[in-house]
């Protein structure tokens, strides 16, 4: 029963964090939102009984991609410009 609710709640959080990642003007916050989305996605993979994919997603998506994004933000500008 708890798992049924988790299948409903976690995708809603995934969509919410993705919307945050698109809307935020602060690119560092957007990178953290992408990391949170990736971590929630790995949790969703875990409760869908795919632990292999969950470990790969948590390692690559939540850690290494965030590191690459933050290094790229550090080399350029932090705030997104108004169009």
């Amino acid at each position: 029963m708890l798992l049924e609710y988790a299948h409903i709640v976690i995708p809603i959080f995934i969509v919410a964090t993705s919307i945050f990642a698109v809307l935020l003007r602060d690119l560092l916050g957007a990178a953290v939102a992408v990391a949170a989305m990736s971590l929630l996605l790995s949790l969703e993979f875990y409760i869908l009984q795919a632990p292999d994919v969950a470990i790969a997603e948590a390692g690559v998506g939540a850690c290494l991609t965030t590191a690459i994004l933050i290094i790229a933000i550090k080399a350029t500008k932090r705030m997104e410009e108004e169009i």
Binding site: D52, I55, A56, G59, C63
Partner: peptide, 13 residues
């Protein structure tokens, strides 16, 4: 569960 790619990603982290 796991394997070369998953463990490699953790060590790289």
């Amino acid at each position: 569960p796991g394997g070369g790619f998953q463990g490699g990603a953790i060590v790289a982290s």
